[in-house]
Amino acid sequence: MSRYTSRRTMFIPALVVLAACSAGGIGSGQASAKEFTVEAQTIPELKAVFGQVESRTVVPARARIGGTIREIAIIEGAEVKEGQIVGRVVDDKLAFETNAADAKIAALQSQLDNARIELDRAQQLLARGTGTQSRLDQAKTQFDVVVSQVAAAQADKAVIEQRAREGAILAPATGRVLTVPITLGSVILAGEEIARIASGQYYLRLFLPERHAAEIKTGGTVLIGGRGLSPVTSGTVATARPGRIARVYPQINGGRVVADVEVAGLGDYFVNERTLVWIPVGTRTVIAVPPAAVTMRHGVDYVRIATPDGPLDVAVILGETFQKDDGPRIEILTGLRNGDRVIMPDATP
């Protein structure tokens, strides 16, 4: 008896029955076949963790003057552009200050008109020989003083008007509104925060056990599952998309290593939303075959191999599915060994 027969004697009675009941087998002549030689290979050891979506920068939209909130133009989750008006603060005192400035300018304008008349009169008297140079100089000085006072009053009014315009609260950057911690009618001070805006690129933050600190490297590749926390929405390693470890923080807090992962397509995620991430923490040697080599009969997975005594169906236990350059592979936990020749079915008659 050969080593293949002794190793798998337990499967032969079942195989005889299955061969008798199955149509289109190897011996039927209805299908051709090719072989796949099993070779042990090294793959990354992946650990599943949850990554938390973060924004690279979060900036506050602040009030530039104190007053009362009269308008809120945004809500949580809204997209805003840089410079967009997100709210408005009104200071009732500015209206009174504007009226006072207008009255002061009007009074000075009257003084300016009178000084201009006095200057014209002094010039005319001096031209006729009845006036003096000192009176002309005095009238000109008075005119210049009032002109400067009018300019100063107009500048004061411009400052008040600018303060009124600064009641418009502007978005400091383009992004998504995270929080709006104020309500209409609230009284706020200059510099107080009225909204927080996530303006930077989104990334994933990972918190890993301290025992994996030596295996986490900047520039390493991780796999990110689909959006959601359930296995149905997160998917598997085979359907995950790649991401890159952009930063590993040098300080361990509470027995955890913190790392940041860059990945595209997080723009519609919520900040602080969690998603499944597979990260390599080592390597292991596995035996794997193409998924097409595995068939299931009566709830049991089988792989057909070539032996000196002829084809033999071997019951196997499957592990993880992973991707290789030449196609997907499925891990075989038990049933095969390195060097076995797997018979691949060919559907071409």
Rank of each mutant, 00 (worst) to 15 (best):
L112H: 06
R163H: 11
V145N: 11
D144P: 00
I160F: 07
A139D: 01
L206P: 11
K157E: 15
A168T: 06
G24K: 05
R241T: 11
S186N: 04
K93F: 10
G24P: 06
L119M: 03
Y202S: 09
G131W: 02
A127N: 08
V177C: 12
T42D: 14
R284F: 01
I12D: 14
Q162V: 03
T295L: 04
D268N: 04
A195C: 13
P242V: 02
L108H: 14
V300W: 05
G319Q: 01
N114M: 12
I197G: 15
A61E: 07
K93I: 04
T236R: 11
I279P: 15
G265C: 01
G225S: 05
L125P: 10
R70C: 12
V38Q: 02
I279W: 01
G175Q: 08
D102M: 05
M344Y: 01
L189V: 06
A214D: 10
D144N: 07
G226P: 11
F96A: 15
P172S: 14
R116V: 07
L333M: 07
A240C: 12
T348D: 13
V38W: 05
G25A: 09
L94Q: 13
R88E: 14
S2W: 07
R211W: 08
V49P: 10
T348L: 14
G335R: 03
G310C: 11
P44D: 14
I252C: 13
L15P: 03
Q323I: 01
G254T: 06
F11Y: 09
D120S: 10
R70G: 15
K93S: 13
A115N: 05
E193C: 04
G327M: 05
V261H: 04
R64V: 06
I160Y: 09
T174V: 07
F36P: 03
E82I: 02
T57K: 08
A115F: 07
E331A: 01
G339W: 06
G235I: 02
G167H: 10
Q41C: 04
S2I: 05
